[in-house]
Simulated assay, not measured.
Amino acid sequence: MRIGFYAPLKPPDHPAPSGDRRVARLFMAALRGMGHDIDLLSDLRSFNRDGDAVHEAATAEAAAAAVDRLSHRWLQEASRKPDLLFTYHVYHKAADYIGPALKQRFGLPYVIAEASDSPRRREGAWAKGYVQAAQALSAADAVLAITRYDLPPLIACAGARAQYFAPFIDTAPFMAAATQRQQHRKVLSARFGLPLDRPWLLAVGMMRSGDKLASFQRLAETLPLAADMGWHGILVGDGPERHTVQAAFAPLHNRITLTGQLDADSLAALYAASDLYIWPAVNEAYGMALLEAQAAALPVLSVNTRGVPDIVAHGETGWLTADDQPQTLASALHNLLGDQALRQRMAAAAPLRVARDLSMGAAQARLQTLFTQLGLPA
């Protein structure tokens, strides 16, 4: 099957790394792995950070031109017309102007993966983007909610066409790293000067303003409350707020190591070598790093918020606190660091659950079921 793919928030070939770009690439890889041909319909980025009306109008104009170009091409070469339109991530700040127009012109089935509906945006700066996003949701034959948190409002506007679709990753590099935990621990200890006689607490995130910075700051408030537990903290990531993150953790002196941004192999090794992943998840959609950690047999301490409980099984693969307050997180950290047997049980269970429910293979099976429901070819 030929699939026309579009990611309005951030194209999959965008130079700046992010979770959004990562998930778009994962969907493309999953579809290719099923034997489908993927055509990237456009690299037009509709993201409107501030709700600027001129920007939104320019996006609509550019999208209309892209639709005309694609339409002309498909009319001239029928073999290039896709069997399915697949858009990743639609909401009022990143509306899809391309998919609905092509569906209307050619009658193609149209799927949106990851979407949200925020009725309060009907008025205000993002009103035009909201209307267009709502039109896309109305036009879609299926709307996939990546978290159960996002599902109820999508059902309200899309009805039975909305369904939950669990997030996923390619588990292979993380599970492979887990088999060499001790070796990775020795190598990383030498590389970054990490103490081998202390449990390693790991946190991974882009160091940028907003929710990511808030999570790092909340973590900096939490760790001193568990200073008696003998841990060593490792922070992975980089970005414009790195200096702010460094300042927040400065009182912890030599108990914190900032590695900067790591390549994929080094990060997988660090997940496998660490003892506990800790992340306050301030306004976190679900957290790809939480999923990666579990795939590498690293138990997670996080918060029962938004989509986090979709990927962390409380008491089985990690521990989710009721809120993100430092005292609450610190109490849970005390308990987990004091119970090695519990952490070991979580470490054993986490990759099994990820492989079963949150892997590339699991996602491909769900996609095949969806395509069958839509009457599409296998």
Rank of each mutant, 00 (worst) to 15 (best):
N283F: 08
Q261V: 06
D310T: 03
G233T: 02
L301W: 10
A297G: 12
V312Y: 05
L301M: 03
L188V: 07
I311R: 08
I234D: 02
D211L: 02
N304F: 03
A313M: 12
L262S: 11
Y286Q: 15
A313D: 11
L213D: 12
A285P: 14
Y277D: 04
K212C: 10
T321H: 01
L329E: 04
L213I: 01
F216M: 00
A227K: 06
G260H: 11
G307S: 05
P224Y: 02
M229D: 11
Y277F: 15
D197H: 12
S209I: 04
L276N: 04
P326D: 07
V300N: 06
L298H: 06
L188K: 10
Q294H: 05
E284C: 01
T328H: 09
L213K: 06
R185A: 01
H314I: 10
V303D: 01
D211N: 14
R218P: 01
H243L: 13
D263A: 13
L201V: 04
G307F: 04
A248T: 02
T244S: 15
I234V: 15
V204Q: 01
L298G: 06
A330T: 12
A297P: 06
R306N: 09
F249G: 09
T328P: 10
N283R: 14
S302I: 07
A268H: 03
R255A: 13
E292S: 11
L219M: 09
H232N: 08
F249D: 08
P240I: 10
D324T: 06
V300R: 09
F192Q: 05
L267N: 12
L320E: 11
L188Y: 04
M206V: 13
L290W: 07
L252M: 15
D265T: 15
D238A: 15
G307A: 09
P299V: 07
D197A: 14
L202V: 08
P309H: 10
R191W: 05
A226W: 10
M229R: 15
A190Q: 15
A264N: 14
W231Y: 15
L267Y: 00
A293F: 04
L301Y: 07
V282W: 03
G315W: 02
S215L: 06
A226D: 00
L225D: 08
P195F: 08
L267D: 05
P280Y: 07
A226G: 02
L267C: 08
V308R: 10
G260D: 13
D263C: 12
H314Y: 00
M206E: 12
A268W: 01
L298S: 10
Q294D: 04
S189R: 11
W231S: 02
P280T: 00
A313Y: 13
Y286K: 01
V187I: 14
H232Q: 05
L213E: 12
A248I: 02
E292D: 10
D238K: 13
